[in-house]
Amino acid sequence: MTVVRGLFIAQRYSAMLLAPFVLIHLALIIIVVRNGLTAEEILSRTNGSTLWFVFYVAFVLAVTVHAPIGVRNVLNEWTRLSGGVVNVICLCLALLMLSTGLRAVFAVT
């Protein structure tokens, strides 16, 4: 299997995960905001919750796989950067998303 085919497959499968994840995430935000919960009330519900921990860790992992591959395609198609430079940029982006995403998950669960 070629690298490009592997990235294509990874992006498609991560998209399959992200589709329901994003809907659940958006629904959650709307419900929380409409009910007027404070930050403390939200944290009291998420702290120690295995369900939300697993959900958001999976969410962050899926985003970390999906988004940098898409950005890689865009940069390869629209800029004159070399393939190696694009790969490094996208790897850094993936690491940034992973670290900030997991940091947020650990902070609220």
């Binding site: 070629t2 490009v4 085919r5 294509f8 395609n73 198609e77």
Partner: peptide
């Protein structure tokens, strides 16, 4: 299939 899915292939 691998070539058609490689660089500049279907993904583009």
């Amino acid at each position: 299939l691998n070539k058609a899915l490689g660089d500049g292939g279907c993904g583009s």
